[in-house]
Design a protein around this nucleic acid. Structure first.
Lengths: 185, 185
DNA sequence: GCTTGCTATGCAACGAAGTGCATAGCAGGA
DNA sequence: TCCTGCTATGCACTTCGTTGCATAGCAAGC
């Protein structure tokens, strides 16, 4: 159950409301951890009850009021404890790989369109990452003091970039393989 | 809900019992889709009830009897229908990325051991994949007719290999980044 | 005035998935 | 003989995630 911890990290990076967290989970954090707003509100409520986070009512003009959450001492401790625990298996779920192996028992060429869509999605996401990197991490070798938050965000982003590049290359490989089964061969 | 379809694909590749499927989910298939034996038995029971798969009691000597499942016509149709549906988001869950960003608010260097463990696990898995490739797909350019099942299994395996290589390279990057925060700097 | 759309929060129900536990046959060794 | 360990199957409980729905404030346009 790392959604708790993903939310804690996000709130440490910047306090915010459930709604704002939901937006973040569509963007930056969402690229390595997904969550719906219903899930987020539920977890926020539980963590508030457990004293992991504090709430502050923030009146706004021109829009409904919001509840701004920030991490309490107990929440920091919980995060710290979790960071110390080993995590293991990285349970993987690649629907597309199941489909590709399944296509052997159907029409392999029928998957081409689907794979192309995925390649496009990964190409788009890569472009998005690279734009974010250029915007948030310009001037690669900064002379200033080490900023852990920034450096660690950057290395995670580089992981996302490496992942997308790998996927695009692999999907090209898949397309070439599927192409060999097209009508006429 | 692709566990159904992952099981169907596995049973099409080779009929087997729940226990055998559970073993496969620890090996080949398990590298892109994980499932416990409890899950597998539950889904088998449901699919049997829906007429997607057939059962055959197989007495064995020296060990308990088993139920061998194979895919029925309705199961093939269900798989075929699923193959035709677009799938989308590939919801990602990278615990380690959460930990890395969280480490900014704790001791970044404390994560080094954990990241090394992960690097080792990915290195082992890569070696396992490469051994499997050498065993099951020797003589890369076979002159024979196109074997869809074999070719598609191979391209999925190549995806696994690419993934592990990418992860190992990224984890090296992470270690280098974490190292800059060690005591003394 | 009405509708659309964004911000903002939440409940209820269901299905998927994970954890723990139970049973049973049989082999092999202490 | 008892214990360990592998094959083989399964139930019960709980947690997590998804889907559908509901409410409410306010702005902007028709």
């Amino acid at each position: 159950m790392a959604l708790d911890h993903a939310i804690l990290v996000s709130l440490l990076e910047k306090p915010g409301s459930g709604y704002e967290l939901a937006r973040r989970f569509e963007r930056s954090i969402g690229y390595f951890w997904t969550a719906s707003h219903q899930q987020i509100y539920r977890v926020l409520k539980r963590m508030e009850g457990d004293g992991w986070i504090d709430v502050r009512d923030v009146p706004q003009q021109g829009r409904p009021d919001k509840k701004e959450y920030s991490v309490a001492a107990a929440g920091r401790d919980a995060l710290s404890a979790w960071l110390g625990e080993p995590i293991e298996p990285e349970s993987v779920r690649h629907d597309l790989a199941v489909k590709i192996r399944g296509a052997a028992f159907d029409d392999p060429a029928a998957l081409i369109g689907e794979v192309q869509r995925h390649r496009q999605a990964h190409t788009d996401r890569l472009a998005h990452y690279l734009a974010g990197e250029a915007r948030d991490f310009p001037g690669h070798a900064t002379a200033g003091p080490l900023d852990a938050e920034r450096e660690l965000q950057h290395v995670v982003l580089r992981g996302g970039i490496a992942y997308e590049r790998m996927m695009i290359a692999w999907l090209e490989d898949v397309l070439a393989t599927l192409g060999r089964f097209q009508a006429g061969h």
